[in-house]
C-alpha cells in the first residue's frame, strides 16, 4: 500500500508498510497512478503509450527504473506482514498511570470533558493513602519494565499539591528498592502556581503541560474562572516564569481549538511571537457535534487549510532561523518506535491505567466516570483481567477501518475513548479525528520534505 499526495508544490509518496518516504517528480507521480505490486523490471509499453502525451518517453523510462529500484529494495508496495505481530498482542505489564489527584478545578472551561473537573462524580481530592496504593499497584503490575510513568492529572492537580509532593517522595523511595525509574509529568491550568511549586515541578517533572488556549479573547471565552472572569492575565505571567526557570525545555503550552476559532494558527503564532513559548500544542476539541463550538465533518476543509497555513509558516520560520515545535507536526521518519509499539498505540487499559481519587481503576483518564468500564479498585484488590485482555487486542489489526488506512503506523488506531464515544465502539474509528490526524501527518511529512529541499539548496 502506498499513499501519495501533493502539497505546497511537493509530490510525496509514503510506502506504508516500510515507512519509506520519497519526494518524486511529476512523471514518477503519474506513473504511480497505474502501478501496483508485482512490478515488472521494465516499464510496460501500454503505460508508455498512455503517458507519452504528458512526458517524454525517456523520462518515463528512467522514472520507472527508479521506482522499480525502490520496489526491488522493499521500499515501494512493500507487503503487509504485520498481522503476525497483532497475534502477539497479549496482556502486557502496566507501566504508565494517570493519577487523578484532584476531581476539582478552579476554572470552568466550557468544553471540559471532565465536567469541570469532577467527572460526574462530585468534587474530591485524592488522599496520600490512595496515592501510595497506586504506586504499589504500578510497581507490582510492572513486571520487568524499568521505566514507569506517572502523570498527575485532574481536575487541577495544584489544588492537591501537598499530596503530589508526598506521592513523588514515596515513589522515589520505592524506585530504589525495586530497580525502577519513575518519570513524572503534570498537567496544570497554572492558576495556583507559586515560585515554590514551579521549582518542585521543574525538579521532579520530566514534562509539564500548561493549559492555555491562545489569544486572550479565545482563552477567556472558553476558560473562565469560577466567578466568570477571564484567566489569561493571571496565568500567562506564571507560565512564562515557569518556562524560564525550566530552561525553556520539556514543556508544552497546550490549547484547544473549536468551531469558534478555526483560525487557530493565529493562536499558535500568538504563543510564539507574542508570548515567547516555543513548545506548542493546539488541538481540536472533542465534543458532541450539537454544541455550538463542536467540530463537524463540514469544518474539515477549513481546518485542513489552516493546518497547511501553519505548516507553511513553520517552514518559513525555520528558514529564518526561528524555531517552534508544534506537537502534531512532530514526526520521526528515521525509524521511530518498533512495529509492535506502532500496532499497540497508547496501551490504554493494558499498559496504561487511570486511578480516581477513590482508588478506582479505569482504562484511561477519558474513561473515568463510565462505570461500565471500571476495571477494579485499589481498596479491594480487584483488577479485571478480561477487560485488560480486551484492550490488549484493540490494536490496529483489531480495527477494520485501521487495517486498510495509510496512516495506521503513525496514528496507531486513534483514541479508544473517542472511538467509543463518537463511533460507538473502541474497535471503530472516530471519523472526524481520523481525517484531522491524516491531514496533520501529511503536513508533518511535507515539512520534512520542504526543510530537506531548503537544506539542499543551501549547500
Amino acid at each position: 500500500m502506498i499513499h501519495k499526495y501533493t502539497m505546497n508544490g511537493f509530490y510525496i509518496v509514503l510506502d506504508v508498510h516500510s515507512g519509506s518516504v520519497s519526494v518524486v517528480d511529476q512523471a514518477a507521480y503519474r506513473l504511480l497512478d497505474y502501478l501496483s505490486a508485482p512490478m515488472e523490471p521494465a516499464c510496460p509499453q501500454e503505460l508508455l503509450d498512455k503517458l507519452s502525451g504528458e512526458f517524454p518517453k525517456e523520462d518515463l523510462i528512467s522514472a520507472y527504473e527508479e521506482l522499480y529500484a525502490l520496489y526491488d529494495q522493499g521500499l515501494l508496495f512493500s507487503e503487509d506482514d504485520y498481522a503476525q505481530f497483532a497475534d502477539k498482542m497479549v496482556q502486557s505489564p502496566v507501566k504508565a498511570m494517570c493519577l487523578h489527584i484532584a476531581h476539582d478545578c478552579n476554572l470552568r472551561c466550557k468544553y471540559c470533558f471532565a465536567s469541570t473537573g469532577e467527572y460526574g462524580g462530585g468534587r474530591k481530592l485524592m488522599t496520600f493513602e490512595t496515592g501510595r496504593r497506586a504506586i504499589d499497584f504500578l510497581i507490582e503490575h510492572s513486571g520487568s519494565r524499568r521505566n514507569l510513568e506517572l502523570d498527575f492529572f485532574g481536575g487541577e492537580p495544584l489544588m492537591n499539591f501537598e499530596v503530589v509532593k508526598q506521592i513523588v517522595a514515596y515513589a522515589r523511595e520505592q524506585e530504589k528498592l525495586h530497580g525502577k525509574n519513575f518519570r513524572f509529568t503534570i498537567t496544570t491550568n497554572g492558576m495556583l502556581l507559586t515560585e515554590d511549586k514551579m521549582d518542585f515541578i521543574n525538579q521532579e517533572m520530566s514534562n509539564v503541560v500548561l493549559s492555555l488556549d491562545g489569544r486572550k479573547e479565545i482563552n477567556d471565552f472558553f476558560r473562565p474562572c469560577v466567578n466568570g472572569t477571564g484567566s489569561y492575565d493571571i496565568i500567562v505571567p506564571k507560565f512564562q516564569e515557569l518556562v524560564k526557570r525550566r530552561g525553556g525545555d520539556q514543556y508544552y503550552v497546550r490549547g484547544t481549538f473549536t468551531h469558534k476559532n478555526l483560525d487557530f494558527a493565529d493562536d499558535v503564532f500568538h504563543f510564539y511571537d507574542d508570548l515567547g513559548f516555543d513548545q506548542i500544542s493546539i488541538e481540536p476539541v472533542v465534543t458532541d457535534e450539537s454544541k455550538d463550538y463542536g467540530l463537524t465533518m463540514e469544518d474539515i476543509p477549513a481546518i485542513a487549510a489552516e493546518y497547511e497555513r501553519l505548516a507553511k509558516k513553520l517552514i518559513q520560520y525555520r528558514k529564518e532561523g526561528k524555531f517552534f515545535n508544534f506537537f502534531h507536526f512532530m514526526i520521526d521518519l528515521d525509524q521511530g518506535p518498533c512495529a509492535i509499539k506502532r500496532l499497540r498505540g497508547c496501551g490504554c487499559g493494558n499498559e496504561y491505567v487511570a486511578i480516581t481519587p477513590d482508588g478506582d481503576i479505569y482504562p484511561c483518564h477519558q474513561f473515568v466516570g463510565m462505570e461500565e468500564w471500571k476495571m477494579g479498585s485499589l481498596y479491594d484488590g480487584s483488577f479485571d483481567l478480561q477487560k485488560k485482555e480486551y484492550f490488549a487486542h484493540a490494536n490496529i489489526y483489531g480495527k477494520e477501518d485501521c487495517q486498510k488506512c495509510w496512516a495506521k503506523f503513525y496514528c496507531s488506531g486513534g483514541c479508544n475513548a473517542n472511538n467509543l464515544q463518537y463511533a460507538g465502539s473502541v474497535l471503530k474509528s472516530y471519523q472526524l479525528g481520523c481525517e484531522l490526524e491524516k491531514k496533520r501527518l501529511e503536513c508533518a511529512i511535507m515539512i520534512k520534505a520542504a526543510l530537506a529541499a531548503a537544506e539542499e539548496e543551501a549547500e
Partner: peptide
C-alpha cells in the same frame, strides 16, 4: 536519482515512553 529523492532510510520491550509518530 533524477526523479526520486527518498527522505529517510519499519520490538515490543515496552520501555518507551507512554504515548507514536516517539
Amino acid at each position: 536519482m533524477k526523479h526520486i529523492k527518498t527522505l529517510n532510510k519499519l520490538g515490543g520491550c515496552g520501555e518507551c515512553q507512554a504515548s507514536v509518530a516517539q
